[in-house]
Amino acid sequence: WVPTKREEKYGVAFYNYDARGADELSLQIGDTVHILETYEGWYRGYTLRKKSKKGIFPASYIHLKE
């Protein structure tokens, strides 16, 4: 896992994603996520609506905010 280059990196989910394991994070369309790390097509972070739950999710489900 590699920390993100920018201190504040955010994105928005444009697909729903159902977590398949305890380390994964479920997403709903429109969720804003804070991205902490990246690795081979995956991000690690949390949604702003539930900051206490961190997990991994596919990068392809996220539109990055500039």
Score class of each variant (00 low, 15 high):
S26L: 02
L48Q: 06
V33C: 03
Y17E: 00
Y15W: 13
E37I: 05
E40A: 13
V33N: 00
R49A: 13
F57H: 03
T47W: 04
R6S: 12
T4V: 14
E37A: 10
H34L: 14
G30N: 04
T38W: 11
E24W: 04
K9V: 11
I35A: 00
K9C: 15
T38M: 11
Y61V: 15
L64N: 01
W42L: 02
V12R: 06
N16G: 08
Y10E: 06
K53W: 06
E40P: 10
A13W: 05
H34T: 07
K54E: 10
A13H: 01
P58L: 10
E37M: 08
T38F: 11
Y39W: 13
V2A: 10
S60C: 14
E40Q: 14
T32M: 14
L27P: 00
V33S: 00
S26M: 03
T47E: 08
E66I: 12
F14I: 15
L36I: 09
H34P: 00
K5C: 14
N16R: 12
Y39Q: 09
A22I: 09
K5I: 08
H63M: 14
I35F: 03
A22F: 09
P58Y: 05
K9A: 12
I56W: 15
E66V: 13
G41E: 06
K54R: 12
T32S: 07
G41C: 07
H63W: 12
G45F: 07
Y46P: 02
E40I: 07
Y46A: 04
K54Y: 13
H63T: 10
H34C: 15
S52D: 13
Y10Q: 05
P58C: 08
V33W: 01
G11L: 06
D23C: 13
R6G: 13
L25H: 02
A22S: 11
K9L: 13
S52K: 10
I35S: 01
K54S: 10
T38V: 13
G21K: 11
K65R: 12
F14W: 14
L27Q: 01
R6K: 13
A13E: 03
V2L: 10
N16L: 05
F14D: 06
T47D: 06
D23R: 05
Y43E: 00
D31G: 02
L48F: 10
K51Y: 08
T38Q: 13
D18E: 14
S26Q: 05
S52H: 12
P58F: 10
G55K: 03
L64W: 03
A59V: 08
Y46D: 02
F14Q: 13
Y15G: 13
H34K: 13
L64H: 03
D31P: 02
L27G: 00
V33R: 00
L27K: 02
D18Y: 11
Y43S: 00
R20C: 10
P3I: 04
I56P: 02
G45A: 01
W1H: 07
I29K: 12
L36N: 04
K51D: 09
L36D: 06
L64M: 06
L25V: 07
R44F: 15
L25P: 00
T4E: 07
G55S: 02
K51S: 11
K50P: 15
S26I: 04
T38P: 01
Y46H: 14
K51I: 10
E37C: 09
D18R: 11
V12W: 08
I56H: 04
A59G: 06
W1S: 07
I29D: 02
A59N: 03
Q28V: 13
D18Q: 14
V33Y: 02
F57T: 01
T4A: 15
N16A: 13
A19K: 04
R6I: 10
H63E: 11
D23L: 07
H34D: 00
T47K: 15
K53C: 08
I62T: 01
K9P: 03
K5R: 12
I29T: 06
Y39E: 03
R44I: 06
I29F: 06
L25D: 03
Y17V: 03
S52T: 11
L25A: 00
K50N: 15
A19S: 06
I35W: 01
Q28N: 11
